[in-house]
Design a binder for these strands. Structure first.
Length: 824
RNA sequence: GGGGCGGUGGCGGAAUUGGCAGACGCUGCGGACUUAAAAUCCGCCGGUGGAGACACCGUGUGGGUUCGAAUCCCACCCGCCCUACCA
């Protein structure tokens, strides 16, 4: 080490030489190991764990490196920071990749992990690797299964037959959010999705819909809150029961109970269970054909966005409960089985979709609401629906009810008669967690001929995945075809039983990884309660916005469920969330292997060093926005780091440098202004200005060096401070230069430089002088100048006099420390 | 149709949140060093007019509030990303 350092003393900045050396040293010294310390304030800094898809691209770095800088800053600020890392290792891509390459998913996944660890280490982040957790480890998914059992025993997990979206290519069910686009294709392989009925496991997430809409306890970005709110999709209205002539009940949900008297027909979704029963023999053929067509349409491709309404009369009739009218029942694909009850009352006068449908099929359009500005309405003449509220008309006993009372009056009317009630409907569905796949945590349930559905006893967990399995796609869960695995004995009756062969949605695994980090080796429970009490909740969580409606809802839900079961505590798992934007390829397109525009961090590190890559990712973008990778712009930070390097290495200290009050004050001022700014910007996730402030300070120190200040204590302190301020962002070069300056190891165990507002204060300021709001002059004045004096100086300015054109000032606005505006 | 994000020099972006628009960089141009190049260093770099001092214009467009607007309000235009008949 010594000789190496001497060699480098005169050498150039070569990141590859110093970075790996310091990384090993830090690891060897367990510098970043987070240990409970009651005497210090804790900070749990979490960044979304990577999925084990092969290797990291620069986007991972973009999420993680600035987060690391902030975590390091907080640590220097005195917080006991935990910054853990792990891997989301189960899931479909692993299995698909394994199928393509004929390699076992486990082997593939763990090889990827090995590679990703190496890549992550090259970043020089302060991860506490001793807390690493991998969701595919039996010791991890043992507890995923344990959580499932808790949910099952508390009636939160339940099984039901359910039409699910099914990808014929991937041979699996898809969550609603994995079906994308107008033509309803699989998010992964773009194959059109079809419907299939299967017995599936669900979690009752809708029970928590209301609580999930409450964001009072968390500091999360508004767009995420909006996305979650829309995803949950709460709407208030009423459920109303219509009876068919055959006596069957058809329940509908409506947000407009006040329009009930205008319901002139009903529409069922083609898949509605009553369709068959209602349909008359004469209509059977037509209805059947339409139903087939509707299924085929979701199957193949949906027509244009504004496609014409289509539908078929079933031949059946229902009775409108408010006025006893007999109204026809139709089926149409604009009514969705997946929303509300799968049936609607159609009020064509006040709903545009119903209007279009009625016009096309010649059904009655009867206005029952008179919005403001209308004297009367004639259904025959209307050109479109009128969705506004208004005075109720043609509505029996409620006719004349004003707009603001219509909703409540209608609900009260329904409730009095027992034909309906106020109701809240959510777009959110219960969470379907069954996956007909191999590479996931097995659902720990058994099916016994005698005892029925039986949970695996907790002491038999984990239900381990067998490795000798044929994981190729067959259309069913591969575990079904394992010769022995699924056969077991029932823990209740000792008779033969079969294991559940579906595995869990990986979002289940990632809903609690932040808890496993607390104590990845703990075997008495999912986590060590002592660790939980100290570290939880997560103080800052960083990651991509794309998880707003999936992971980020699931993990909140999971926490709330477990709180209900006494496992976790507090209202929310993650207090502060911040989302970074996306790094695009150099061509401005989303990075993808097929486009060939993926930026490989290994290559960038090899070319420029980890510090330069980190600094560039911080400097080049607004963190929340992201943008295209620019191979030229990174040169700017490379040059900066080189300047810092030579500044430290080529400046001899110990000599008496140039001194002088002005020189010293001016450098000190910049130093303290930079301390303030870097701290503030790191706190606020404004990473680009962190680096620009550091560059400015470097420029200032360089200028001071040119003036011969090296050796002056103020200069030396400035250099030390620069390194300390750089330490969070560019940890390797900061450590190396710190050590070259003979300072005490490690820079990452130093405190954050103390900011002194007096030293940061300007003594001279430039007072802007405006005439009628336009800048006309600038006057150098002492910072603490009195208002009167400032006004005098401004009015006395020759230039100002000229622009005042001899007029008397009507008003003079004075902003201390800023400007004087003379209004004439 | 609904929702989100954004629009500032040739480019990435700053602007103490209503107070000098363009910090810090990249690119480009000019110069120094070099036999030459790279690297490095110095200078210039929003537009128009002017030899110049300087003046005028300028933050997507139009209006408004204000002593003062990139920033606040209203209307509109454009781009990107979600979402999609949500009863």
């Amino acid at each position: 080490m010594m000789t190496e350092q001497i060699e480098e003393k005169m050498g150039r900045y070569e990141p590859s030489k110093i970075e790996s050396r310091w990384q090993s040293r830090w690891e060897q010294d367990e510098l970043y190991k987070a240990v409970i310390d009651e005497s210090r304030e804790k900070f749990y800094f979490l960044t979304m764990l990577p999925y084990t898809s092969g290797d990291l691209h620069i986007g991972h770095w973009y999420a993680m490196a600035p987060s690391d800088a902030r975590a390091r800053y907080l640590r220097m600020r005195g917080y006991n920071v935990m910054y853990p890392i792990g891997f989301d290792a189960f899931g479909l891509p692993a299995e698909n990749a394994a199928i393509q390459r004929d390699i076992h998913p486990k082997e593939w996944t763990y090889a990827n992990i090995e590679n990703m660890r190496r890549q992550l280490r090259s970043m020089g982040a302060m991860w506490d690797w001793s807390r690493e957790a991998i969701s595919a480890d039996p010791e991890y998914y043992r507890w995923t299964q344990w959580f499932f059992l808790r949910m099952y025993k508390n009636d939160i997990a339940y099984r039901k037959m359910s039409p699910v979206d099914w990808c014929p290519h991937c041979n699996t069910t898809l969550a609603r959010e994995q079906v994308i686009g107008d033509n309803r294709v699989c998010e992964r392989c773009k194959t059109p999705v079809i419907k299939k009925d299967l017995e599936q496991w669900f979690f009752r997430i809708t029970d928590y819909a209301e609580e999930l809409l409450n964001f009072d306890f968390i500091d999360w970005p508004d767009p995420v809150k909006v996305l979650q709110t829309n995803w949950i999709g709460r709407s208030e209205g009423a459920r109303v029961v219509f009876k068919t002539e055959g006596g069957d009940e058809i329940e509908v949900f409506t947000t407009r109970p006040d329009t009930l008297w205008g319901a002139t027909f009903m529409v069922l979704a083609p898949e509605h269970p009553l369709v068959e029963k209602i349909t008359t023999p004469e209509q059977e053929q037509e209805v059947h054909a339409y139903t087939q067509e509707a299924v085929r349409q979701t199957d193949i491709e949906r027509e244009s966005l504004d496609k014409e309404k289509s539908g078929v009369f079933t031949g059946g009739y229902a009775i409108n409960p408010v006025n006893g009218e007999r109204i026809p029942i139709w089926i149409a694909d604009y009514v969705l089985m997946t929303y509300g009850t799968g049936a609607i009352m159609a009020v064509p006068a006040h709903d545009q979709r119903d209007f279009e449908f009625a016009r096309k099929f010649g059904l009655e359009i009867r206005p029952v609401i008179l919005p403001e500005g209308f004297d009367s309405l004639d259904g025959e003449l209307m050109e479109g629906a009128l969705p506004e509220y208004g005075e109720m008309i043609n509505s029996g006993p409620l006719t004349g009810t004003p707009a603001d009372q219509a909703f409540d009056a209608a609900v009260a009317y329904l409730e009095e008669r027992g034909t309906g009630r106020a109701a809240v409907n959510y777009r959110l569905h219960d969470w379907l967690i069954s996956r007909q796949r191999y590479w996931g945590a097995p659902i720990p349930m058994l099916y016994c001929e005698n005892c029925g559905i039986v949970p695996v006893p907790e002491d038999q967990l984990p239900v381990e995945l067998p490795e000798d399995v044929e994981w190729k796609p067959t259309g069913e869960s591969p575990l079904k075809f394992h010769p022995t695995w699924k056969n077991t004995t029932c823990p209740e009756c000792d008779g033969p039983a079969e294991r559940e062969t579906d595995t869990m949605d990986t979002f289940m695994c990632s809903s609690w990884y932040h808890l496993r980090y607390l104590s990845p080796d703990y075997d008495q429970g999912p986590f060590d309660p002592g660790e939980y009490d100290y570290w939880m909740p997560v103080d800052t969580y960083t990651g991509g916005m794309e998880h707003a409606t999936m992971h980020l809802i699931y993990t909140r839900y999971f926490h709330k469920v477990m709180r209900g079961l006494g496992v976790t505590e507090g209202p929310e798992p993650m207090l502060q969330l911040r989302n970074q934007g996306q790094i695009l390829g150099p061509d401005g397109q989303r990075m993808s292997k097929s486009r060939g525009n993926v930026v490989d961090p290994d290559e960038q590190v090899a070319n420029y060093g980890a510090d330069a890559v980190r600094a560039y990712l911080m400097f080049g973008y607004r963190w929340t926005e992201g943008g295209p990778w620019n191979p030229d712009n990174i040169q700017g930070v490379v040059r900066w780091l080189n300047r810092v390097w030579s500044l430290v290495m080529e400046t001899e200290d110990g000599e008496a440098g140039a001194s002088g009050r002005e020189l010293e004050r001016s450098l000190q001022r910049k130093v303290h202004q930079t301390i303030r700014q870097v701290a503030q910007d790191l706190e606020q996730f404004e990473f680009n200005t962190v680096i620009s402030a550091l560059m400015e300070l470097t420029n200032e120190i360089l200028a001071a060096n040119d003036k011969g200040m090296a050796g002056n204590p103020v200069f030396e302190e400035a250099l030390d401070t620069l390194l300390l301020l750089m330490a969070p962002s560019t940890p390797h070069i900061a450590e190396e230069l710190w050590s070259q300056r003979g300072r005490q190891y490690s820079i990452h165990q130093q405190g954050w430089p103390v900011f002194d507002p007096d030293l940061a204060a300007e003594e001279q300021i430039t007072l802007i002088v405006q005439v009628n709001g336009k800048v006309r002059d600038r006057i150098e004045v002492p910072a603490e100048i009195a208002e009167d004096e400032a006004r005098q100086l401004a009015l006395g300015s020759e230039i100002v006099q000229r622009f005042m054109e001899g007029k008397e000032p009507r008003d003079v606005i004075y902003v201390p420390g800023r400007l004087v505006n003379i209004v004439v």
